[in-house]
Design a binder for these strands. Structure first.
Lengths: 337, 337
DNA sequence: CTGTTAGCGCATTCAT
DNA sequence: ATGAATGCGCTAACAG
C-alpha cells in the first residue's frame, strides 16, 4: 500500500466503504462534513488519486483529447503553425486540467489504428489537422462515434455532425496577388504545400484565380529544402518570376536564402511572400512579408469547441480570426514599382 | 454493437472465447492458424481494437509516456528547444506506437496532481524537463514508483534510480566568453534564463567563472519582451557592455531588434550571441552566432532511455551530443577586434 | 491448443 | 446519509 494505494485502502483508513470515498471525490451525492473530512484526510495521508484507467473504463470518459500526427515530426514542428497552435490549445486545456494525447504515425494503416485505439478509452475527442477533400477520417470518426473538431480552410467544408474551426485562405491569397500586381509584377509564382490538403488547395486556388494560370504553380512539401529547390527551378526558367509566394515561412526562408546566394537583391530582383508569419519573419534580412494565420487563436478555438462538444453541445462551425497580411520590405520597393 | 464492439462481440463472431481472442491479439500463447484467422477476420469485420483503459487497468501498462509542462505554453513553444525536442522524441515513440501525453499546469499544486494522476493508469513513465536543484519532483517520482528520464545540465546531477540525459552547458559558455575576450571585449553581459533552473544556472556559472563578476548577469525569463527590456537596461548603463550573451535565441532576437532600433550596428557596436541555434538564426540580419544544443538528438535519447527503463533496463546516465558554437556575423568583426 | 473464471480499481445501482 | 453488490472490458491463471 506504500506504492499504489487504491480506493479500498482509503476506505479502510477512513473507516467507510469504497462507495463513500468515490462519492466524496466526485460529489455525486451529499456527504456529511464529518465523513468527508475523514475521507479527504485519509486520501491525503496515503497520497491517493483515482486511477485514470479504472475511471475511464467505468465512466467512459478520459478527460483527455487527442491529435494523430501523420506528418514527419521534423517538418511539422519546424513550421510556425503547429507549435503555436498547440500552445493555444494547451492554454485552454490547462484551465480544465485536460490532457493532450499526441500520437505520431508513419503510414495510413497506423493512422487508422491510432484513431481506433485512442478512441477506445484513451481520449474523449480529436482535433483533426491537415484536412483533405473527402477525407477518409471523417467517416472513421463517424463510425467510432467520436467527438471531433476539424480544422478547415474555407466554408465549403462544413458538417452536420462535426464542429469545425475554419479560416479563409483564399481571400488573403487573392489580396496578396492583387497587391503584387499593383506593384507591377506580371510573373508571379506560387510554391504551394502538398495539394492534397484543403488549406494548400485553397491558397493555390486563390492564387490561380487571380493569376489566371497554373504555369508558375509549383507544389512543395513545406520543407526548407523544397523551398530552395523549387526556387532554383523557378529562377532557372527562361522567363523567371519576379515575385514568389510560398505556402509557409520555412519554404520562403529557404527561397530567400537561395536567391541571396545567387546574388539576387530582395525585393529589387525578386519579391518574396511567406505564410504563417513566424514571429521571427520581421527580423529577417530583409524583413519578410507574410500572411498571419493566427495559429494561437485557432488552437484556443479548437479546444473550446471540442470541450463544448464533449460536454454535449451541438456541433458548430466557428470562424477564427481572419488572416492578416503583414507587408514588409521583402515585397516593397520592387524593381517595377 | 455497431458502435463499440467489445472482445465478447469478437469472440461470438469468431465462435471462440474471449481468452482466445485476447491471446490472438497479444501473442501470449500459441494459436492455431485457423482460429487466429477466424479471430482477426471477426475483429476486422467489427472494427474492434482492444480498449486501452481496460487493458491499462489489468496490465498496469499504458503504452504512453507523459510530460508535465509547468511553463506558460506560449513561452515554451516559442523557444526553438521544445518543439524540436518533441519532434525527436516523437520520432522514437512512433516506431513503437507509443503515445505522448502532455499536460500543462499553472501552479505547483496542479503540477503535483498531474504527476499523480498521470502516474495512475495514464502513462508508464515521464520525461522531466527544466530540472531545478533539489527538485521536489524527484522525490515525488520516487514515491510514485514511476520510471522517468531527467533532462539534466552537467554531470553533477546523477541519480541511482533515474536515467538522465545530460549535456554540458558550462563548457560551451566558457568557450563563448573566451572567444569574445579574444575579440577584445571586456564588458560582456549575460541575459540568463530563470536561475532556478539548473540549465540556466550552469550557463550563468560558466559565464561568471570566466568573466569574474556577476555585475552584468541579468536574469531573464526566456521571453522576447524580457530580451528587449534587459537589453535596454544594459545599454543604459554608464559603462554599457560591448557584447551580450543570451540564454536563448528568442531573447537574443529581441535584443538584436532593440539594439538595431537604437541605431546600434551589430556587431560593430554590440556583439550578440544566442543559445539554441534556431534554424532561422542563420537567416537573421546579421546572421546570429548561437550555441546549438542538439534538441532533436536529446529528444531521441530521452525516448530511447525512457522506453528502455520501462522495459526493465537499469537506469543510466546518457550524454547527448555536445553543444556546438556556430560563429556568425553577429559577433565577428566587432569594433575592438 | 482452447474454454472457464477471477479479478484489475472504480462508479453506480440497489438497499437501508 | 451510508453500506453492499454489480459490472465496465480486458488479461491471465487455472483447467482440460
Amino acid at each position: 500500500m506504500s506504492s499504489k494505494p487504491t480506493i479500498a485502502d482509503v476506505a479502510r483508513e477512513a473507516g467507510v466503504t469504497k462507495g463513500t470515498v468515490s462519492h466524496v471525490f466526485n460529489g455525486h451525492r451529499t456527504i456529511s462534513a464529518a465523513t468527508a473530512k475523514k475521507v479527504t484526510d485519509a486520501a491525503a495521508k496515503l497520497g491517493w488519486i483515482p486511477n485514470q484507467a479504472a475511471r475511464a473504463l467505468v465512466e467512459k470518459k478520459t478527460n483527455a483529447v487527442g491529435i494523430v500526427l501523420a506528418r514527419d515530426p521534423e517538418v511539422l514542428y519546424a513550421d510556425a503553425f503547429f507549435p503555436v497552435f498547440l500552445s493555444g490549445l494547451e492554454l485552454e486545456l490547462s484551465k480544465r486540467e485536460i490532457a493532450l494525447v499526441l500520437q505520431t504515425v508513419t503510414d495510413r494503416e497506423a493512422e487508422e489504428r491510432a484513431y481506433r485505439s485512442m478512441s477506445q478509452g484513451r481520449v474523449d475527442g480529436f482535433v483533426v489537422l491537415d484536412m483533405r477533400c473527402d477525407d477518409w477520417r471523417v467517416g472513421l470518426l463517424r463510425e467510432l462515434h467520436m467527438k471531433a473538431v476539424l480544422m478547415e480552410s474555407g466554408d465549403d467544408y462544413q458538417f452536420e455532425d462535426f464542429s469545425t474551426v475554419w479560416v479563409d485562405d483564399r481571400g488573403p491569397m487573392q489580396e496578396v496577388v492583387d497587391h503584387l500586381h499593383e506593384l507591377g509584377h506580371t510573373r508571379i509564382a506560387h510554391v504551394s504545400g502538398p495539394l492534397e490538403y484543403v488549406h494548400s488547395q485553397q491558397r493555390a486556388q486563390g492564387y490561380v484565380e487571380r493569376v489566371g494560370s497554373r504555369e508558375l504553380l509549383y507544389e512543395g512539401d513545406f520543407t526548407a529544402k523544397q523551398g530552395v529547390e523549387l526556387t532554383r527551378e523557378l529562377l532557372a526558367l527562361s522567363e523567371p518570376p519576379t515575385a514568389i509566394i510560398y505556402a509557409n515561412d520555412v519554404m520562403a526562408i529557404g527561397g530567400l536564402s537561395y536567391a541571396g546566394s545567387q546574388g539576387l537583391a530582395i525585393p529589387e530582383d525578386l519579391a518574396i511572400v511567406g505564410y504563417e508569419d513566424d514571429p521571427i519573419s520581421v527580423h529577417l534580412n530583409p524583413p519578410m512579408t507574410s500572411v498571419s494565420t493566427n495559429a494561437y487563436n485557432r488552437g484556443q478555438l479548437a479546444a473550446q469547441r471540442l470541450l463544448a462538444d464533449i460536454d454535449g453541445d451541438m456541433p458548430k462551425a466557428v470562424q477564427s480570426l481572419p488572416e492578416t497580411i503583414r507587408w514588409r520590405a521583402s515585397t516593397e520597393g520592387s524593381h517595377l514599382a
